[in-house]
Design a binder for these strands. Sequence first.
DNA 1: CATCGATGTTGAG
DNA 2: TCAACCTCGATGG
Length: 327
Amino acid sequence: MPEGHSVHRIARQFARNFVGKRIRLSSPQGRFVDGAAMLDGHTMTDARAVGKQMFLEFDNGLWLRVHLGLYGAWDFAGDIHASGTDAALRGRRRRSVRPGAADVTLDLAGEDSLQSIGAPRLTRLRMAEDEKVSVEPDGFPPEPVGQVRVRLLADDVVADLRGPTACVVLDPREVQVAMDRLGPDPLLDDSRAAEDRFVTVVRKKPTPIGRLLMDQLVVSGIGNVYRAELLFRAGLNPHAPGKSLSDEQARALWQDWAYLLKIGVETGQMMTRDGLSDAAYGRALRRRADRHWVYKREGLPCRVCGTHIALEEMAARKLYWCPECQS
DNA sequence: CATCGATGTTGAG
DNA sequence: TCAACCTCGATGG
């Protein structure tokens, strides 16, 4: 799935394109008919991401909680436009593309040629672990394709949810319970108190740090890619018990996660390497294989010391690390 | 075209 | 600890 950065980007799409609008909800798939009915016709009042969870609030006081799980995705279509922080990276895209350094920005004013020949077209934005934009000759709203758990339809935009692990309606008390079960998210709270919460928990536990980083009660939003990359960047052995870390090591981990998450939200990629030239950085943003220090590089030489990258299972997930740099 | 594996969590045992 | 979830790109024939 999308690790924390993608969920923040998706919440931003909702904040930009749905909040403040009256939304029709339906469940084309049929598995969320009752839930959809509870929110149908209400105005969306808030869209927030906490780690990998997203919460959408409606004006009847109820919330929709969505977790994409391993392969869930949101498909946006219609008069969508990307949000704010990346105006400087604005680019115009007509066909199916993979966004590279630039954020996905849809500049419909640039579609003059299509409009002038009167061709109906539909802009789509798929948001999962990667993002894809396309322009299709369909009308609005498009027919739901495949298993759409829930469709959120406004006048000019639509969002289809497929393959989620969780899609439930919650009252405010239940939202509080769900949020209380989530560790600190540095994008939501960059305070010293949040850092302290992480550091205190980590330095108390005998659990290997490679497990603690994946535990959403300890810290929100880290998945298998960021786990491996954070540990490599810190030079930490994944098996080191949390309580063996120094205060400085634990704080550095938190701060590096805050740094990588910010880059992830800005670029839409899990870009975990640095110290690259502009050209190499741009290449790495487009080529997954160049983006990471150790993730999915088992058997290949470490980019720093040349030692073969190791692969083992930890917390039921594949763990990649350099036995030399992370000793 | 069939098969595999994935950035994740849940719930059964 | 493991199967289930039930999507979809990558891979192989």
